[in-house]
């Protein structure tokens, strides 16, 4: 059902956990549909210095969470905002079709964490339109 790359991220997820006193928090999903993801970020000099995730969900939900943390770690906030759910699925070399919508929300969680960072710090958000795909 899942390819090797997805299984690798599911079985050996990267950056699991929660950053203490994070600069931004993103929480997406809904327990009703069975997937909830929480992303916490640390921002330094406009870059994502550290990122961690916690996810309640299926194999795809966990693998996409893990993959998105790898993709955006060390990136500038603008670069991170350009990473979409689709980018994450592609980086995982594909997800089963039924998982594309319900369990592929990790990039949304990152965007929400960045938005939260901008709101908390009162800094101007450069790429407003980048938030929603």
């Amino acid at each position: 059902m899942y390819n090797e790359k997805v299984m690798d991220h599911f079985m050996n997820p990267r950056n699991v956990g929660e950053i203490e006193n994070p600069d931004g928090v993103g929480l997406v999903g809904n327990p009703v549909c069975g997937d909830v993801m929480k992303i916490t970020i640390k921002v330094k000099d406009g870059r994502i210095e550290d990122i961690k995730f916690k996810t309640f969900g299926c194999g795809a939900a966990i693998a996409t969470s893990s993959m998105v943390t790898e993709l955006v770690k060390g990136k500038t906030l603008d670069e991170a905002l350009e990473i979409s759910n689709k980018t994450v699925a592609e980086a995982l070399e594909g997800l089963p079709p039924q998982k594309m919508h319900c369990s592929n929300l990790a990039a949304d969680a990152v965007h929400m964490a960045i938005k939260d960072y901008y709101e908390k710090t009162g800094k101007v958000q450069v790429a407003e339109e980048g938030i929603h795909e």
Binding site: G34, D35, G57, G59
Partner: peptide
């Protein structure tokens, strides 16, 4: 935890 994750 979610069931599919346990099953896998």
């Amino acid at each position: 935890v979610e069931g599919e994750a346990i099953l896998l």
